[in-house]
Design a protein around this nucleic acid. Structure first.
Lengths: 113, 113
DNA sequence: CCGCTATATTGATGTTTGTCAATACAGGAG
DNA sequence: CTCCTGTATTGACAAACATCAATATAGCGG
């Protein structure tokens, strides 16, 4: 019989004991929030809408300020709305954007703002 | 002489008055922070290190848990360290990762965590 | 109805990014 | 010194992304 003074304990890993991992759906949802702000233009847009006069801004002024084409700005705004950081409201010909609750939380979170 | 009952006010834009824009360097710096967490794997890694036993984790265990190749995990950890969210310490053969101050702030910021 | 203007969508293109295989580097054991 | 193991870097490739030009849609004024 073999000696078992040093029984093998199935110690596959080296050392650290880790918590249960996030579900991949969970991790993806959280990453999606960050991804929405992982672009300088979108950071700029959130900043601009947050500081706008009546707490809202329309696309034309944002386009002028960020100096990108109108389709590009529209594209970024859509991403911010889809992420729940902005809301869109159509009044007449113009589309007005406001900071949503999740956006306010970002602005207060001391993560660069 | 022309009547100027409705003087033209150089109203180039339509309506909203916006704050001064962020400098592009500023916007890029802020976006870089978010970009570091704009990936499910990196969200997972921050979660795992934050909940690790002695507040630290080594690469081998993280690699086992996230089920990606070791170079890929190393790559993601580097991004998190470069963003100031994790710190790295080499002790012997192993590399130990801990959550840095900026990482703690993210975890408390209610932005998905 | 027809224009006109503001916004959104589509298609194409160059750049960035996540991933792995292969390789290099670092540190402990013999 | 030489091996062996854990970690980091390099190179390559496919997928995702930011951007714009062109086009489509929406809503107002005539």
């Amino acid at each position: 019989m073999k000696t078992d003074l040093l029984p093998v304990v199935e110690n596959v890993s080296c050392c650290s004991d880790l918590p249960t991992a996030l579900s991949s759906a969970d991790a993806e949802a959280k990453a999606a929030r960050f991804k929405a702000l992982a672009d300088p233009t979108r950071v700029q847009l959130l900043h601009l809408v947050a500081g706008a006069g009546r707490d809202e801004a329309c696309v034309c002024d944002l386009t002028d300020t960020v100096k990108l084409s109108q389709p590009t700005v529209s594209h970024h705004l859509r991403i911010l709305v889809d992420a729940g950081l902005l809301t869109r409201e159509r009044r007449g010909t113009w589309a007005w954007y406001r900071v949503a609750d999740a956006g306010q939380r970002v602005l207060k979170a001391d993560l660069g703002f």
